[in-house]
Design a protein around this nucleic acid. Structure first.
Lengths: 168, 168
DNA sequence: GACTTCTTTCACAAACTTTTGAAAATTCAA
DNA sequence: TTGAATTTTCAAAAGTTTGTGAAAGAAGTC
């Protein structure tokens, strides 16, 4: 298989994977492109490679930066900005885990905690069933929260220990 | 907080969580409703509770059954069908993990394996960068695959050991 | 076999999301 | 300042997904 063909295929596969995840297609495609390119790209290069408009490029690159998946690179003597993706997929996974926890798990945990104290006779089967379900989900959510935290933590401490090695 | 209010809030929270996950809102709401109700509900009851059309109810209940999250219950002497959700949230999580692996991870692993062998000089930095990225992602995908499999497996064996206890 | 009750399908409407491209804003150098 | 290069914004167009309700289908009962 030729590089150009493989590249196109990878970009489109990553894109449709992203779409299934509620991440928009273009955002995933830009990420894929930056993942496989050795050097940072400018906005114009991204536009050309993916055949998308300037506005679209700008918007999605910004969102990727928000997620911590892409970095803005300033080249001395260049007015244009360049963009580069984090290449270590383990780190990518922790950034995503962190972001999704913040957007999805944290809000539902807040609601679940409020829903714990429903008024009413514990003998009423509707009240009982409701309370049981909420408690069950709440336990699971706490467990998941701990698991994600320790996953994210392990990557952070990996970072500090690497830093330490560099300066020792 | 009153039960009715808590119920409404839970359904709507679960619904918007589902939406962020690429699961459609109604599907998640039906699931939420069935989760907290002690007894199975009929299609008409679901329609009334959530204020949705018959067609919509039918379509989404069918999809939930596909995912293995909801069961069709036949009550003797009743023509109507009733529906009930799996209440053990751990099991729900394994069903979802299984289903998403099948829909998302398996296809990308297939593509990654094909993309491994790109023609070209290993010295070409574009070829090298591409191959490195793919290899990195491939390793991660295999790791994730194993993790999901053992998670799903652990639940299955829990099931069989429970079964065993019942009959021993 | 006609009637009743319930389920499934489907074309279309409504709602929502994404993309575009042109115009406005920003940045920097001369 | 002015102006050239670049980035950002935004309203409208295009595309996608979801929900509706009427009609067709199935299954059981008289």
């Amino acid at each position: 298989m030729k590089l150009a063909e493989a590249k196109a295929q990878f970009i489109q596969t990553w894109g449709s994977l992203g779409a299934q995840w509620g991440i928009n297609r273009t955002m995933a495609q830009i990420h894929a492109l930056l993942l496989i390119m050795p050097d940072p790209l400018s906005a114009d290069e991204i536009m050309q490679e993916l055949n998308i408009s300037r506005g679209n490029t700008n918007m999605n690159v910004r969102e990727l930066i928000n997620w911590g998946l892409v970095e803005r690179i300033l080249v001395p003597g260049e007015r244009r900005e360049f963009f580069s993706a984090e290449k270590d997929i383990w780190k990518v996974a922790t950034y995503i885990a962190k972001e999704r926890k913040k957007r999805e798990l944290d809000p539902i945990m807040k609601v679940l905690n409020q829903l714990q104290d429903v008024e009413g006779e514990a003998k009423d089967k509707y009240v009982k069933s409701f309370k049981d379900s909420i408690q069950n989900i709440n336990k699971f959510a706490h467990h998941t929260d701990k698991t994600i935290n320790s996953f994210v933590k392990s990557e952070e401490s990996w970072f500090y220990s690497t830093l330490l090695k560099i300066f020792k």
